[in-house]
């Protein structure tokens, strides 16, 4: 039996997590993709070109709401062994609803496919990974995009069909949407932190770090030496006597890696160090070390991220 992927799309383009979800789906069978919601037409054209997609179904172009979309998935479900969506806000909104209508326990945020019934998913905020086997006849899952390399954008040629319309239960209606410009997150809650040390040389120079932070949606931190020198505010100090942080990505710029600093960031999942001294102790804890002058490397980093 084929598997069905519910696509996420924005401004008429498929999102990268959708391509990752297709990659996960290909491990399970022939892939069909359903594209629905505002701008679905343009996105459907793109989805039809994804390699490995056999069939493309287009749904209603009305703004996607969980209730009608779940009804549509349930109507299509008999033809599929698995229903997948990216574990995005949209996917997490609709897939559990569809699963319940099918009397199936949903599998959220799947990060590994073992076989058709067995999946790996993170629990306890990613501090543990559970391998679970589903006894349900049909599987409904959302997929953690970063765990699957996305399929290329081009290379396939799927047939396009309109999905049979499902009745809108009329339980909710769309009022409006607003894209919020993200403010810089709080240091201890941020997913990414970039910190500057004494090598920054001045408060003004912190601007180059802030630019990178804005690109990444990161919070900005500092070593105590940078704080003491007045380059950064007190509440930006990371370390044993400052804030303890454990983001997914920590970038230390011009920080030597004193033990008091390390105590505040060593539990970060991925650590990057940029330092011109290749013997700096920070490199001993860094996953990725770049020996370079920060005044050259940091602007380059910003430019590279902008690409």
């Amino acid at each position: 039996m084929a598997v069905l992927v519910l696509a996420d799309h924005k401004d008429g383009a498929l999102t990268q997590p959708t391509r990752s979800t297709v990659a996960a789906a290909r491990k399970l069978g022939d892939v069909h993709v359903l594209v629905a919601g505002e701008g679905a037409g343009a996105a459907a054209a793109a989805a039809a070109r994804l390699p490995g997609v056999a069939k493309l179904l287009t749904g209603s172009e009305a703004p996607a709401l969980a209730e009608p979309l779940a009804a549509q998935l349930v109507a299509l479900a008999p033809g599929y062994s698995h229903l997948l969506a990216p574990a995005s806000a949209a996917g997490r909104n609709v897939m559990p609803r569809a699963a319940a209508l099918l009397d199936v326990q949903v599998l959220s945020d799947v990060c590994g496919v073992v076989d058709a019934d067995t999946f790996i998913r993170p629990i306890y905020a990613g501090n543990a990974l559970a391998t679970v086997k589903s006894a349900d006849a049909k599987k409904v899952l959302t997929v953690r995009a970063t765990s699957f390399d996305p399929v290329p954008a081009e290379g396939g040629n799927a047939t396009v069909e309109a999905a049979p319309a499902a009745a809108d239960p009329g339980l909710s209606s769309f009022v409006g949407a607003e894209i919020v410009k993200s403010e810089r997150p709080e240091l201890t809650a941020a997913r990414i932190v970039i910190s500057g040390g004494r090598a920054m040389g001045s408060a003004e120079n912190f601007a180059i770090i802030e630019k990178v932070a804005d690109r990444l949606g990161a919070a900005v931190g500092a070593s105590r030496a940078a704080v003491d020198a007045g380059y950064a505010a007190n509440d930006m100090q990371v370390g044993q006597t400052g804030k303890i942080v454990a983001p997914e990505l920590y970038i230390a710029v011009g920080i030597s890696g004193a033990i008091q600093h390390l105590a505040g960031m060593k539990d970060s999942k991925v650590i990057v160090a940029i330092n011109k001294d290749e013997e700096a102790p920070i490199f001993q804890v860094a996953d990725y070390g770049l020996v370079a002058d920060l005044f050259k490397a940091v602007p380059e980093l910003e430019a590279e991220l902008a690409k």
């Binding site: 993170p122 629990i123 990974l129 559970a130 006894a135 349900d136 490199f283 770049l290």
Partner: peptide, 26 residues
């Protein structure tokens, strides 16, 4: 409906490495 076959810790950090350029880092 689900049976938990095993629960494990996520992979530990790999030994660090140096990268040659900003492009490689990104």
């Amino acid at each position: 409906r689900l049976s938990v076959l095993k629960v494990e810790e996520p992979a530990k950090r790999q030994a660090g490495k140096k990268v040659g350029s900003v492009q490689e880092l990104v």
